[in-house]
């Protein structure tokens, strides 16, 4: 334990931005099921108090799907306990968080195989078969 931990500083403050964010997510889910496009929210664009991001995460909880994409460092994709609501955390090769998004969608774009990558894969496979 460092002596810093003994300083009695409270960081539990609330900006009041958590509730509106959850409402926004609810509306985005309704739009999604209503046939409209998905929604993406940049967590960095919100003024959040220390601890509030963790509170949002705790409120959303963890759902059935958890995936990791390894491209320019790891990206964690976690479906929350509310189906259709995904928490996406982009990290760099040093494991530091680069950006965080909440995506309301059926499946995050990053999980789909991309046509360009498929084309490159076909090339490699043909090379393999040709050799």
């Amino acid at each position: 334990m460092s002596s810093l931990d003994t300083i009695p500083v409270t960081t539990e403050v609330a900006t009041g931005n958590v509730a509106p964010l959850l409402h926004e997510i609810r509306h985005a889910l309704k739009r999604l099921t209503g046939g409209e496009e998905g929604t993406s929210i940049d967590l960095k664009s919100l003024p959040l108090a220390p601890g509030e991001e963790e509170r949002i995460e705790a409120t959303l909880g963890t759902g059935e799907v958890r995936a990791e994409v390894d491209a320019l460092g790891p990206t964690l994709i976690q479906e929350t306990s509310y189906p259709g609501v995904w928490l996406i955390t982009h990290k760099n090769v040093d494991d530091a968080v680069v950006a965080r998004f909440i995506e309301v969608t059926f499946i995050p774009e990053l999980l789909r195989s991309q046509p360009e990558d498929i084309d490159a894969g076909i090339d490699r496979l043909e090379n393999e078969l040709g050799s």
Binding site: S45, L72, A99, F101
Partner: peptide, 26 residues
């Protein structure tokens, strides 16, 4: 692409760059 960055990697780069420029995710 010549550096071996996949399209997924590129999209991630774009998401982070958009966030960096304070642009909306859309």
């Amino acid at each position: 692409r010549s550096q071996g960055v996949s399209r997924r990697g590129f999209l991630k780069f774009c998401s982070a760059t958009a966030s960096l420029m304070a642009l909306p995710p859309s």
